[in-house]
Computed example of a mutant assay.
Amino acid sequence: MKTSFFLFVLLFFLDPAKNAFFDEKCSKLNGRCTGYCLKNEELTSLCRKSLKCCVTVQPCERSKGNDSAT
């Protein structure tokens, strides 16, 4: 009984530290934790409580010096 209580307490206090790790990882990627990603966002990782880390996708642009099509 003491062993199971000890394990419960140990896992209970480790859970918030694990969740903070995922949120910190998302913020380093300049993302945001949300329930779903928008059309112009990409899922990069997971956050706490089944949230998704979404990062805005930057569109590819043509460089002005390489206009071989015109």
Rank of each mutant, 00 (worst) to 15 (best):
C60V: 13
R48H: 14
Y36Q: 14
C37W: 09
K18Q: 13
A17G: 01
C26H: 10
S45Q: 02
L51E: 15
C53I: 05
K39Y: 15
C33S: 04
K2E: 01
V9G: 07
M1N: 00
L46N: 13
T3A: 00
G35Y: 06
K49M: 04
L38H: 01
F8L: 05
L11W: 08
L38M: 12
K28N: 10
V55R: 05
R32D: 04
C33I: 01
A17I: 08
F5T: 09
F21M: 11
S63N: 13
L38Y: 04
T34K: 06
R32M: 09
K2T: 02
D23T: 03
T44H: 08
K39T: 11
L29W: 06
G65L: 11
T56R: 07
R48D: 15
C53Y: 00
K52F: 03
F5H: 05
E24G: 12
A17D: 07
N66E: 15
E41A: 07
K2M: 03
A69S: 13
R32A: 08
L38P: 06
L46K: 08
C53E: 05
F6T: 01
C26N: 01
T56K: 15
F8K: 06
V9T: 10
C33P: 15
G35M: 01
E42C: 12
R48T: 01
F12R: 05
Y36C: 13
T56N: 09
F12K: 02
C37E: 05
L38G: 10
R62S: 09
E42Q: 07
K64S: 12
N19Q: 13
R32E: 07
K28L: 06
V9F: 15
A20Y: 14
L14M: 09
P16T: 02
S45A: 09
F22T: 00
L14R: 01
L51A: 06
T34E: 05
V9W: 10
F12P: 10
F5V: 11
A17W: 14
S63I: 03
C54F: 01
L10S: 08
E42G: 09
K18A: 14
L43M: 01
R62N: 08
R48A: 14
C33E: 09
F12M: 06
A69L: 08
L38W: 00
N30C: 10
A20F: 15
L46S: 14
E41G: 01
L29H: 04
N19Y: 11
C47Q: 08
M1S: 09
Q58C: 07
T3I: 04
F12I: 03
D15S: 15
V55C: 02
K64M: 04
S68Q: 13
C60I: 14
